[in-house]
Simulated scan of single mutants.
Amino acid sequence: MAGHDNDLAAITAVAGRLARAERLLVITGAGMSADSGLPTYRGVGGLYNDGGTDDGIPIEMALSGGMYAQRPALTWKYISQIEQACRGARPNAGHQVLARLEKGGRQVTIVTQNVDGFHGQAGSGDVIEMHGNLHQLRCPACNHREQVPDFADLAIPPVCPACDGMLRPRVVLFDEMLPDIAVARYEQALAQGPDMVMSIGTTAVFPYIAEPIRQAVREGIPTVDINPVASPLSRAVDHHLAMPAAAALTAIELALATSGLGETAT
Rank of each mutant, 00 (worst) to 15 (best):
Q136R: 07
L137M: 10
L137V: 01
R138N: 05
C139Q: 03
C139N: 02
C139F: 06
P140G: 07
A141W: 08
A141P: 04
C142A: 06
C142F: 08
C142T: 07
C142K: 05
N143K: 06
H144P: 08
H144C: 09
R145Q: 09
E146W: 03
E146I: 01
V148T: 02
P149N: 01
F151T: 12
F151P: 07
A152F: 08
D153N: 07
D153L: 08
D153H: 10
L154S: 09
A155Y: 14
A155H: 15
A155F: 13
I156E: 14
P157R: 12
P158A: 14
V159C: 12
P161I: 01
A162G: 08
A162K: 13
C163M: 00
C163D: 03
D164C: 12
M166V: 14
L167A: 10
R168G: 11
R168T: 10
R168K: 15
P169Y: 09
P169F: 12
P169C: 09
P169K: 14
R170M: 12
V172S: 15
V172T: 12
L173S: 12
F174P: 09
D175C: 04
D175I: 07
D175F: 04
E176M: 13
M177W: 13
L178K: 14
L178I: 13
D180G: 03
D180M: 03
D180F: 03
I181N: 06
I181W: 06
A182Q: 07
V183M: 09
A184S: 06
A184E: 04
A184T: 06
A184I: 05
R185P: 02
Y186V: 10
E187S: 11
A189R: 01
L190I: 07
L190G: 05
L190Q: 08
L190Y: 12
G193C: 00
G193D: 00
P194T: 00
P194E: 00
M196R: 01
M198T: 02
I200T: 06
I200Q: 03
I200K: 02
I200S: 05
G201V: 05
T202V: 03
T202M: 04
T202G: 00
T203G: 01
A204C: 11
V205A: 13
V205Q: 13
F206H: 15
F206W: 15
P207E: 13
P207C: 12
I209Y: 13
A210F: 15
E211N: 15
E211H: 15
E211R: 15
I213Q: 08
I213E: 07
R214L: 11
R214H: 09
Q215V: 08
Q215E: 13
A216V: 01
V217I: 07
R218F: 10
G220Q: 11
G220H: 10
I221T: 03
I221V: 06
P222W: 00
P222H: 02
T223M: 04
T223W: 05
V224Y: 07
V224N: 11
V224F: 10
V224G: 09
V224K: 11
D225K: 00
D225H: 03
I226A: 00
I226K: 06
I226F: 06
I226N: 01
